[in-house]
């Protein structure tokens, strides 16, 4: 029997979804997962909001919980003006959260584990918040790069530092999400492959030894669930933080 090998990165490769039809349109499995995330979040809201009871049922509580969570995040971080950006922040939060959660299910694709997707999201947030800054403050927004209360001769040194710090935002935003999701999935694959290797090489003894990586994978599943929620939260709260900077300039 040929020993199975560990292919940790194969799970991230793109294939086409929706059969013949998808192949013609270059509709990938990543797009499939994105569509699923959008459909699920819209469906949950449509279902949960149908009752509109004073004392909410399960579905409605879930929807209200999500709504209030993001709303509080907006108001606490950006301020009262933050409600203007609530739809954007909510869309980003729910899309990433659902993407992370869908990716945890076996045979489903985690689209947040591709830097192309996370960088596109982060660049959108970056360009949007910069646009908001220039829209609200005009050219005075450039003063954002000039720290206050600093002697003039230090400015040639400090302004480049501030600009680099500002430009690094989309990079840190996208790499954090992408790295966390990829690392988790690779660890899963490696431990699962280790189980196959053990059973293939040591027979019955190997089957018993494989219980150890199986236990690790179960523990990892719990951790990944936490990371999935936390990374969506961090992405959303950083979006709020950048919008706060754009609106208030400090």
């Amino acid at each position: 029997m040929a020993a199975p090998s560990i292919d940790a990165l194969g799970q991230f490769s793109l294939t086409t979804g929706f059969g013949q039809f998808g192949r013609a349109l270059h509709f990938t499995n990543s797009n499939e997962a994105m569509l699923a995330a959008a459909v699920i979040i819209t469906g949950v809201f449509a279902l949960g909001l149908q009752a509109r009871a004073l004392v909410p049922g399960r579905m409605q509580s879930l929807v209200e919980l999500l709504y209030e969570f993001v709303r509080n995040m907006c108001v606490d971080t950006i301020g009262e003006e933050g409600l203007r950006f609530f739809p954007l922040v909510f869309t980003i939060f729910s899309f990433i959260l659902l993407g992370n959660l869908i990716g945890l299910i076996p045979y489903f694709f985690a689209f947040t584990s591709h830097i192309a997707v996370t960088l596109a999201l982060a660049l959108f947030v970056f360009v949007f918040s910069t646009g908001v800054g220039f829209y609200t403050h005009g050219f005075r927004f450039f003063k954002f790069f000039v720290p206050s209360g600093v002697p003039g001769w230090l400015l040639p040194l400090l302004v480049p530092i501030e600009i680099i710090s500002y430009l690094s935002r989309p990079v840190s935003l996208s790499v954090r999400l992408f790295a966390n999701m990829t690392a988790g999935h690779v660890m899963w694959e490696v431990f699962a492959g280790f189980m196959l290797l053990l059973t293939a090489s040591f027979g019955v003894l190997g089957v018993f030894a494989a219980i150890v990586p199986l236990g690790l994978n179960v523990a990892l599943a719990a951790l990944e669930l936490l990371v999935a929620g936390l990374q969506a939260y961090v992405f959303a709260i950083l979006t709020c933080l950048y919008l706060h900077d754009a609106v208030h300039m400090h």
Partner: peptide
């Protein structure tokens, strides 16, 4: 969760 990447990102951009 944030701090690690924050430093490297600035370096990369620079």
């Amino acid at each position: 969760m944030r701090l690690g990447v924050e430093m490297v990102a600035a370096m990369v951009i620079a």
